[in-house]
């Protein structure tokens, strides 16, 4: 390393300096000073590279460190019970030492699935309109407003859910299906979550559409395609990998969202049986219970296991989507 860098500075010295520097040094060449200056520049460069490398390694290791810590702390419960029992038992009675996470896992999956099913079509249509159809004025106003949704604190979404979505479900949607619901339900949590992930999916999708060369659309248009045919057969096809990435970003946010969901999901530790019934997703369980019932034996360990399971679910979906992405990219070129 050292030898190569000194030879580099030597060779740089042998090259003519830019004219202003030559003028400044005219008459009294000071190779030592120049070497020092050159040297300190190179040292700075190395320092910068090294510290950035360190930070990169640090942040990419963080996930392992967190997972390791969670695993360490959940070992007591893993030592007492089988993993299968913990994952698939539906009985959650911490006072009796029964810790079945199945209701919470299902709660998380249900709520997230509902959110994504609601959000994806709406977001795609919005993004398509903004990128393909909207006049510039509309686009310039609508995009920042949509982005603003991302800045609303989670607890505000939760309150809004309680004030608007919960009564809506209780008074209108449930009666329309001839059933009763308190309103605190999978559907309520899914709807609130859907709105929370709107900005992510819309923003990324619009960016992805924007990255497709306009000439590709013109190619389709010039063959006599309508605007919609162009979107359907060319733009969406070309954008598919990006759209998948957008949905996964939304999905990851939805899995982990805690506060708003906790406020409207009902939080009953049972496997959800209907959209209008309550759910108790993992993040809500952790946030509700951690620090409160830690006198119960193994409770602390159980909650850390819940965190680990949540992390595993998110990672699993990320890996899966990565695999899908690779396949899709191979098919569409």
């Amino acid at each position: 390393m050292d030898t190569s860098s000194s030879s580099l500075s030597q060779s740089q010295l042998s090259q003519p300096l830019p004219s202003d520097q030559t003028a400044a040094l005219h008459g009294q060449p000071q190779p030592a000073l120049i070497r020092l200056l050159q040297g300190s520049r190179l040292i700075k460069d190395k320092l910068a590279a090294a510290s950035m490398l360190f930070l990169t390694i640090g942040s990419s290791l963080m996930i392992f460190l967190i997972a390791l810590q969670l695993y360490q702390r959940s070992r007591p419960i893993l030592a007492m019970k089988g993993l299968a029992e913990l994952l698939f038992s539906t009985s959650w009675r911490p006072l009796r030492g029964e810790f079945g996470f199945f209701p919470f896992i299902m709660g998380t999956l249900w709520v997230t699935a509902v959110a994504v099913i609601i959000a994806v079509p709406l977001c795609l249509l919005t993004a398509i309109y903004l990128s393909e159809y909207a006049p510039r004025m509309v686009r310039e106003w609508a995009r920042p407003l949509v982005d603003l949704l991302a800045g609303i604190p989670s607890v505000v979404y939760g309150l809004w859910g309680i004030l608007v979505i919960v009564p809506l479900i209780k008074n209108y949607i449930a009666p329309a299906f001839g059933t009763f619901s308190t309103g605190y339900s999978v559907l309520a949590a899914g709807m609130v979550l859907a709105i929370m992930i709107f900005p992510v999916i819309i923003h990324v999708s619009v960016e992805v559409f924007g990255s497709i060369p306009y000439e590709m659309r013109e190619a389709a248009l010039s063959l006599g395609a309508t605007g919609w045919q162009t979107v359907k057969y060319v733009v969406l096809r070309k954008a598919m990998p990006g759209i998948i990435a957008a949905v996964v970003l939304g999905l990851s946010r939805a899995f982990g969202e805690t506060m708003a969901v906790l406020m409207v999901a009902g939080n009953v530790a049972r496997v959800p049986s209907s959209l209008l019934g309550p759910a108790y997703p993992l993040p809500a369980l952790i946030a509700n219970s951690y620090g409160e019932m830690l006198s119960v034996p193994l409770y602390d360990s159980a909650l850390l296991l819940a965190s680990l399971i949540l992390l595993a679910i998110v990672l699993l979906f990320n890996i899966l989507s990565r695999l899908i992405l690779i396949r899709v990219e191979r098919n569409i070129q």
Partner: peptide, 25 residues
């Protein structure tokens, strides 16, 4: 547009197979 075939500055094949590009129109 159907009456006018357009050839742009750079080729922009549609994101599909060779066959589907021709069959697209």
């Amino acid at each position: 547009r159907k009456k006018m075939g357009l050839l742009s500055q750079k080729p922009y094949p549609l994101p599909m197979s060779i066959y589907d590009n021709i069959a697209f129109g």
